Amino acid sequence: MDFKPLVTLLAVVNPLAIVPFFIHYTQGFSSQQRRDTVVTASFSAFLVIATSAILGLEVLEFFGISLASFQVGGGMLLLISSMNMLNAQPAEAKPLTKELEQGAEKAAMGASIAVVPLTIPLLTGPATISTVVIYAERAQTFWQMAALVGYGVVIGLATAVCFALADPIARVLGKTGINVMTRLMGLILAALAVEVMALGLTKLFPALAH
């Protein structure tokens, strides 16, 4: 079984790096509200990955986009994400825009922020979706596709564990520890991004293969 998609997804999603955001957005939540947020965010992350795996290629076909072009574009997106991570930022990091600030205000009022902004865009954004679609194309059998969807379950569980243990993780690792982990995952992701781009470029320009 090929575990490269799982390694790539873990590097892109990197729930450890989102722990500080989780703590920030759930300040003032009751224990039950926090548990509900953990469950919703974890299931939403799985849902994004599973949907991308099953329907991603059909969406590309609908818009007439070749997979080779998508691989190059997706690889560039992964490379940009890895640069973010090498600077100790989440792969899907975005500035604290007005939308996210409003999300924080909603959290203070007791509304769930598990889907936006925790799951989308912080956990599973464009880089994650691109990764899943690229690996979905390589799935030749039903079981390979099932394994890819299964990796979504693993990502969901990893997210649940990290968020459920957010306070202990933040205390043990601290900001420095989380930054080191994020940079290491960024280095792995950069190498994988170059590989994805190389595959796409050789399909677009076969002469490069020689």
Rank of each mutant, 00 (worst) to 15 (best):
Q33D: 09
P117T: 00
G73T: 04
L187C: 11
G75V: 10
P5I: 00
A41Y: 01
V132Q: 01
G75K: 03
K203Y: 13
L201T: 09
S69K: 11
G73D: 02
F142E: 11
G110A: 05
P5N: 04
L173Q: 00
A111H: 14
L55G: 10
L208F: 07
Y25K: 05
Q32N: 12
S130R: 01
V72W: 06
W143E: 13
L122R: 13
G103L: 08
F62K: 11
G75W: 05
M85G: 06
A91D: 02
A68T: 10
P95D: 08
N84G: 09
G75I: 09
L86W: 05
T97C: 02
G73Y: 01
S44D: 04
I18Q: 02
I23L: 15
T119W: 04
A198W: 12
L57K: 09
A190V: 01
A198I: 12
P206D: 04
Q27Y: 13
V7H: 04
S69F: 12
V7T: 11
M109S: 15
A198E: 13
T40W: 03
A11P: 05
G110P: 02
I23K: 06
L77R: 07
E105P: 03
K98Y: 14
A107W: 10
E105K: 13
Q89Y: 12
R171Y: 12
I129S: 02
A93H: 14
M83D: 12
T128F: 06
L199V: 12
T119K: 06
S82Y: 00
I169N: 03
L204F: 03
E101L: 15
L199S: 14
G103Q: 07
K106V: 11
V172H: 11
K106L: 15
Q144N: 10
Q27G: 15
S81N: 06
E195S: 13
M85L: 04
L78A: 03
G73Q: 03
A107E: 10
R171P: 08
P121S: 03
L148S: 01
V12E: 03
H24Y: 15
S82E: 06
T176D: 15
S66N: 08
V7S: 09
R171T: 12
N179L: 09
L173P: 02
G64M: 08
R34S: 07
V115N: 10
P20E: 07
F205C: 07
T124A: 12
N14M: 05
A193C: 04
N179R: 15
D2R: 09
P117N: 06
L148E: 01
M1R: 13
G73N: 03
T119R: 06
R138Y: 08
L157F: 15
E105I: 14
F70C: 07
